[in-house]
Computed example of a mutant assay.
Amino acid sequence: MPANIQRHRLCQTQVRRLLDSDKWSEIWDAELTGFHIRKTSKSASYRLSYRHPTTRKCHVMTLGRADQISLLEAREAAARTVSMLASQAMNHKVDTVLNQ
């Protein structure tokens, strides 16, 4: 997440306002690290920014368009993804220790 962007607890009211807007914008969630919504001139998408557990490279995953899935569905998908990545990171650490 860029350092100069403020985070807020995303709510459906903010999403509706963002969808009605014509300008480009991003709102980052204060509750779930990396979860955000990006509004472009054409559409808005829920996204998740994260570091890969083994390579540590930055990635951004689009979870879905804001006009097709709800904020709750997107937040749940982001939480599942974060959990899966944490599990992969833990498995990688265990494999590394066992293979030494």
Rank of each mutant, 00 (worst) to 15 (best):
A3W: 07
I5S: 12
Q6I: 11
Q6S: 13
R7S: 15
H8K: 15
H8V: 15
H8R: 14
Q12S: 14
Q12V: 13
Q12W: 01
V15S: 12
R16M: 09
R16V: 13
R17T: 13
D20E: 14
D20C: 10
S21Y: 05
S21N: 12
S21E: 12
D22P: 09
W24Q: 13
W24H: 12
E26W: 06
I27D: 11
D29E: 05
A30G: 05
L32C: 09
L32E: 11
L32I: 15
L32S: 09
G34K: 03
F35K: 01
H36S: 07
H36F: 14
I37L: 07
I37N: 02
R38I: 08
K39L: 09
S43K: 10
A44D: 01
S45H: 04
R47H: 01
R47T: 02
L48C: 03
Y50N: 04
R51S: 11
T55F: 01
C58G: 07
V60Y: 00
T62K: 03
T62V: 11
L63N: 05
G64S: 06
A66L: 01
D67W: 05
Q68T: 12
Q68Y: 04
Q68W: 03
Q68C: 08
I69W: 02
S70C: 02
L71K: 08
L71H: 09
A74R: 08
A74S: 06
A78K: 02
A79E: 13
A79R: 14
V82L: 11
S83M: 11
S83T: 15
L85T: 01
S87I: 06
S87D: 14
S87F: 05
Q88D: 08
K93N: 04
K93G: 00
K93Q: 10
V94D: 00
D95S: 06
T96H: 10
T96P: 01
V97D: 12
N99D: 12
Q100H: 10
